[in-house]
């Protein structure tokens, strides 16, 4: 297969960027999208040019490192798939794609397709945990959790923090990411003690980091590689207003 690419190239955080055209030749249908980019980069390196910078690590869809826009859609058009798991057999010879980094004020571009997502760490620092020190935890089976509750908590906890939800949102809102952690912990008995302060602090942090508001478009859910549900945001809003009234 031959694939045509238009790629955003930007040398550093504080400089302008531009689109450049590349062609990937001899693309095998068994390649992942990133492996196709590896091949493009190999050719660039051989020519003495700087390869396209993109992030990736586990290449099995769980670390959340990879991600960029493929023709306007985060991680590309295949549902529930990170770009490392997107395979070229889903495309046709001669297809063209435009690759861009996540675009969001809270995710400044570092280089080409790589952005700074440390704002997500800071949202977690604001309360995305249970305050339990190592040692002295009671026997695990002393905390009974119904299977349905545990499963629902797991549904939320599956978020890989890739940032696709922010990139898809016209407001660059981090509501899906933040709400997934809030929902995970608010469902479990272990998360009850800090339930009120957690939601208030995490929502506040989300705002100060420069993420926009949620206006319920549902774009985030549609592109989420882990299928994190929009219901998490409803839960977060409910938790938030409850907390506001309580405090």
């Amino acid at each position: 297969m031959r694939i045509h690419l238009t790629v955003w190239r930007q040398a550093g955080p504080n400089v302008g960027g531009a689109f450049h055209a590349y062609t990937a030749e001899n693309v095998s249908p068994d390649m992942s999208f990133l492996e196709m980019l590896d091949v493009v980069n190999e050719q660039l390196i051989k020519k003495g040019e700087e390869p396209i910078a993109f992030d990736s690590d586990c290449r099995e869809g769980i670390c959340g490192t990879c991600g960029f826009m493929i023709s306007g859609i985060p991680h590309g058009s295949q549902p529930h798939t990170t770009v490392c798991q997107l395979h070229m057999r889903k495309f046709n010879d001669g297809d063209s794609f435009t690759l861009e980094p996540w675009r969001a004020k809270a995710f400044p571009v570092l280089k080409d397709l790589v952005v700074d997502r440390s704002a997500f760490d800071r949202i977690i620092q604001a309360g995305g945990y249970t305050s339990v020190n190592t040692g002295g935890a009671k026997d695990a089976n002393n905390i009974l959790i119904g299977k349905d509750i545990a499963d629902a908590a797991m549904d939320s906890a599956e978020c890989i923090g890739c940032g696709a939800c922010v990139a898809a949102c016209k407001n660059a809102s981090a509501a899906l990411f933040t709400s997934a952690k809030i929902t995970h912990l608010s469902l479990l008995p272990q998360g009850q003690v800090e339930r009120t302060t957690r939601v208030l602090n995490m929502v506040e942090r989300m705002d100060t980091e420069g993420f926009g508001s949620c206006s319920n478009e549902g774009e985030c859910e549609a592109v989420c590689p882990k299928g994190i549900s929009l219901k998490n945001i409803a839960t977060m809003n409910k938790e938030f207003w409850k907390a506001v009234l309580q405090s």
Partner: peptide, 22 residues
């Protein structure tokens, strides 16, 4: 044995039986 206790206290959503046990 302590690891499991610690992780459950943190809120790690381990798989559960219907009765709520791990």
């Amino acid at each position: 044995v302590n690891i499991i206790d610690q992780c459950v206290a943190q809120g790690v959503p381990f798989a559960r039986e219907y009765g709520g046990h791990l």
